[in-house]
Design a protein around this nucleic acid. Sequence first.
DNA 1: ACGGTGACATACT
DNA 2: CAGTATGCCACCG
Length: 133
Amino acid sequence: MPRSEEAEWWANAVYEAIQEIPPGKVTSYGHIARLLGEPQRPRQVGVCLKVLPAAESGAHFNNDNVPWQRVINSKGMISHRGPGSAQRQAEALQSEGVEVTTDSMGEIYVSLAQYGWFPKHLPSEEGGEDEEE
DNA sequence: ACGGTGACATACT
DNA sequence: CAGTATGCCACCG
């Protein structure tokens, strides 16, 4: 029981929200934070994923039942935290039918306009595409 | 005990 | 339109 109750609540809410993301879709950290009513804490969403327990840890929320792979940054790009980690995430997404594109810089992108999952209508998202559901 | 960092995003310059 | 600055708060050194 590391983490205070508050942090636990936050992580809990984050994991639940992520589980709401339908397969074959992706969303952003900021959107998750917004869904939780805390639009100012997109980073903490990432922190929660970083501390996400392993599948074999026996935790209620773990690497296996939380589709962490469906969460990317607002630009539709997969952040590279370690060597090959982004690659792994891209692979997982492809396995769900999500098309990913790699630019010349080696950065992996996902078309938010195509696979973005945004239950709420975002005010300013990519050029003004009113994509909903 | 303390300060820097980070799976980000928005606002401002 | 691109680069810089700030907020947020758990985790690591």
